[in-house]
Design a protein around this nucleic acid. Structure first.
Lengths: 199, 199
DNA sequence: ACTCCATTGCACACCGCTGTGCAATGATGG
DNA sequence: CCATCATTGCACAGCGGTGTGCAATGGAGT
């Protein structure tokens, strides 16, 4: 049964709600305080401290969860024998509906958490760099930038497109896919074909 | 004569030093306080308040100056009859050595200054959007994104490349030019040719 | 009905940053 | 040499966010 008050919710229910809301709130404004997060979660500030002793703990947990989810998508989509192009297309398709959810990671890279977040994002960075490297080796992606940089730039670009009003919708997904493929050095004709599901 | 202490400097000398340093410091960390800016400028916090009554005033002045400089470059490089491709190449070439100087503008777009900075950046946004629009109309740029969005994404991408370790140097400039052209929908062969100065 | 326990609603101290006031200092320019 | 004035050094109040303590509340499961 749905309870309107937050009184009778199970521990994990509240905890997850806080985490989810924080993902959203901090995505919009990385400087949001515990108070903002609490009220957005329909909970009192004191309650948040009951689940996360420190703001830093909240953020770290948040980032860990988000990174875990992205890595999951990535390992699910990326197979050594698949073409890097196709993997990237699938990756963007899977990420696009959840851009809002992971915006916080970009916002966190620069911010009071210097090394903390950087080492936390390392898995994602590594997989992405490897993927782009493979694409370059097989001639699918361009060599105008080293794989490590190109992957980051392409990744950031998808977020950039989402930030500029195209977040969520299907047309946005197609545009983001094509644009990021162009950036990666895929010719326009092939990029549109890939974005429309042709192998 | 060069004075090592900050005592005998003229008013504008100190003022400009503060502005320059603040441009740099806030570029790295938008949340830096007046104390950080002051000490980085080799000056006491109190002195900064002597020139800028409020942190907000400092930031506004900063942004105005930066926007002014960018607009100057833009109007100098952009002529209605020039090909959008060429204009973009020149724009990146002129901006690249000063990326660090204007990073703050990107950092400021999201941050406690919501509308304030947005209206301040409007001139740049408008010119850039117009430029890309022209490129699209003449078939030089792609139509995978509306001009307003595409210009922003291309603009942001140049900063993104600079942020990923390639800032400053000449090879970075070439890479940034090519990459942003690809993103704008220019074919790879033409992009490299343009980046190497062929019309 | 009764017990558990998450949540609530205060209370508080602490900290860092902002912005201000004022007297002292010392380089600069006449 | 002297007056000017930017800079300095300190003191202070205020604000907002953090993190903690504790008693009261009210669902939920038994």
């Amino acid at each position: 049964m749905q309870t309107e008050s937050a009184r009778g919710r199970s521990v994990n229910e509240t905890r997850n709600r806080i985490l989810d809301v924080a993902l959203d709130v901090l995505g919009r404004n990385p400087d949001a305080g515990m108070g903002d997060i609490a009220s957005s979660a329909g909970v009192v500030r004191r309650t948040v401290y009951g689940h996360f002793p420190t703001r830093t703990d909240l953020v770290r947990t948040l980032a860990q969860r988000a990174v875990g989810e992205i890595v999951a998508v990535l390992t699910e989509v990326d197979a050594p024998e698949r073409a890097a192009e196709a993997v990237w297309v699938d990756f963007v398709a899977r990420m696009w509906p959840l851009m809002r959810r992971y915006r916080v990671l970009l916002a966190l890279r620069r911010g009071e958490y210097g090394e903390e977040i950087h080492t936390l994002l390392e898995p994602v960075d590594t997989i992405l760099a490897g993927l782009v490297q493979r694409g370059q080796d097989r001639g699918d992606f361009g060599r105008h930038l080293p794989a490590g940089v190109l992957s980051q730039v392409a990744y950031a670009t998808v977020f950039s497109i989402a930030d500029n009003g195209l977040a969520g919708g299907a047309p946005g997904a197609r545009a983001a896919t094509i644009t990021s493929l162009l950036l990666l050095g895929v010719p326009e004709a092939r990029a549109t074909a890939l974005a429309d599901g042709q192998p």
